[in-house]
Design a protein around this nucleic acid. Structure first.
Lengths: 334, 334
DNA sequence: CACATCGATCGAAGCGCTTCGACACCGACC
DNA sequence: GGTCGGTGTCGAAGCGCTTCGATCGATGTG
């Protein structure tokens, strides 16, 4: 194993000089730096992570808590994960994977052993037992999602209320006056998943402020569930002409059901969604949608903890404004 | 921060005694051990990971390389990941997440910095540039999947050849003589993904050894792809009565297509699959299937590297025997 | 009863790095 | 010409842990 001492010897300088070349924390003459870098290259030197962590109290690792067994939509989850890994690497950090099951104890463990410099938690619930742990940690943390009480916690998320409202506004501008909202399955609301509630609330208040009629229903992502949801919406919203769908898995099923029921999209029914851009584009009918900017949110979360590691404390909620992409699934009301 | 020195002082023993209590590497009297454990509990001591890694040359972290952007079927991928994390935790290890993009350099980096004790790689290709890196690493590694030349590498996988053969045998026992094989999309074969080829090879050689007729086709997991695959099979295998499906995503679509074509499963066509157990159970018709034992394979991979860390060198290919679960989708030929 | 044996404990030497203070050298300044 | 302030470099003191002798009673053995 090549150590910093080998590099120093090879370059004819002291150990600390090598260290300062690597960290840039003190100025080094161009000539010396050149020799050191050459030595590093020649010897294939890689600094020992443990020694570095011990001496600097920085592990250059961040923990990511992933809801591996949840009913989250996997493709989006994956985008978050890749986003976090990519952003972390851009900040010289690696990502330690924790599962939901590890829970609060897992957080305490990785933080207490100083294995990680920071923690990012996905899919937080409204009243999550991990929140208190996070608040008490010496390490910074960031949530993807917003709990009931986000005080003292850095949170990033899509502005789901504004997203739903943006769908409503788009449909209203096309002349639609009677709208339905298809949400995630009931259990997601029960668990107090905040994005679900915020989207529905955004839908409802947008209806109110524009004096439109409408209702929202939960929906399981199978044919029966979709049929039931549509039936309920039709019953509660006579003359339904527009739909806002916030349920990635149900969306393709819903389009399929409408198709086999002989309903044309958007001629008979306009459909706007909150879903990954890629999905919206690749469906049978390209769907007008507010994209879920998973990679961007992941980068936001990483940025939040990195800034805190640099000493800038700013534990606030950061919501990304929705961007609606109009596609073929919405049109003027007939 | 509580250090081992604090614990030692609190328990009235030396630092090394605390260390030996923790590691169990030397015998400690029950009474002393009690005092030390009490001190650990009272102070909430957690050993510093960096210091430990530096002193012991063990990080207690293993790297998992995940094909986050591949066309792998996500639910199965997730099962592998949770399986690895769970098994690693059972061996006192945490899991560092590397993406495919990091490639060979990523492996060199985490190994070279001694960030990880071992590496587990998923979704290896037949001729994977990372294989040479793995062979040269001082750390042990294990592959989930089998490359063209597995020499010097620990590999674990399902015996896909035997799995396909087991499906053929089951169908043959039910009297079927004309079989089709529905595989993954063409690109998966192109990339040299070994499990795809091994399954098809197993199917073909099982046909031969039982003197049955049949053919295999690749298949994209959409309605058009499935229809095309079925048409080609019917053309190449007149009197087709049984299907072996090795394509998780196409399987539900296929059942749907058969249904809407008015074909009864298993009365008109028997269907056996290689797919996750959970999926096989939850389809419209419960499907006779060889399960993909993702969690078990993950545990096998972790076990392989752990044993190597304990000094037992055994870099061989370990294939799990298939377990066929007979369900409603297969029946006697009419 | 002397001696080897063993169990329980301690002290100290690292592990490879970061970082602080010190120092030597140089040019600028009055 | 002495002083001051930079700049570039070095030495050494840790960071918190593991682990290798060494020590010291107690126990067993011939």
């Amino acid at each position: 194993m090549v150590t910093i001492a080998d590099v120093a010897r090879h370059a004819g300088v002291s150990i600390s000089t090598v260290s300062y070349v690597l960290s840039g924390k003190r100025s080094i003459s161009a000539e010396t730096e050149g020799r050191v870098r050459a030595a590093i290259r020649d010897l294939g030197y890689l600094p020992n992570a443990g020694a570095r962590a011990l001496a600097s109290s920085r592990s250059n690792v961040l923990a990511l808590v992933v809801p591996l067994r949840s009913d989250m939509y996997l493709p989006v989850l994956m985008q978050f994960v890749t986003g976090v890994v990519t952003a972390a690497r851009a900040h010289e950090h690696d990502v330690l994977l924790l599962t939901q099951e590890e829970g609060a104890d897992g957080l305490r463990r990785v933080a207490g052993t100083a294995l990680t410099d920071a923690v990012i938690v996905m899919d937080v619930q409204q009243h999550d037992p991990r929140l208190e742990v996070l608040r008490g940690l010496p390490q910074p943390s960031a949530l993807i999602g917003v709990p009931a009480d986000p005080r003292g916690l850095a949170c990033v998320d899509l502005d789901f209320a504004a997203s739903a409202a943006s769908c409503v506004a788009h449909l209203a501008d096309l002349g639609h006056r009677d709208l339905g909202f298809v949400g995630p399955p009931e259990p997601v609301y029960q668990r107090g998943t905040s994005f679900a509630r915020r989207a529905l609330a955004g839908f409802t208040s947008a209806l109110r402020s524009r004096a439109l009629a409408g209702a929202g229903v939960p929906c399981t992502p199978d044919y029966r569930g979709v049929r039931r949801a549509l039936a309920e919406l039709r019953a509660r919203v006579p003359g339904l002409t527009g739909l806002v769908v916030h349920n990635e898995e149900a969306l393709p099923v819903l389009l399929d059901v409408l198709h086999s029921d002989g309903l044309r999209v958007p001629d008979d029914l306009s459909v706007a969604a909150i879903c990954p851009d890629q999905q919206a584009q690749s469906l049978a009918v390209p769907v007008t949608a507010v994209a879920i900017p998973a990679e961007e949110l992941a980068a936001d979360a990483v940025r939040a903890v990195m800034r805190e590691l640099e000493g800038v404390r700013d534990r606030t909620v950061r919501l990304r404004a929705p961007e609606l992409r109009v596609r073929a699934s919405t049109g003027p009301v007939r």
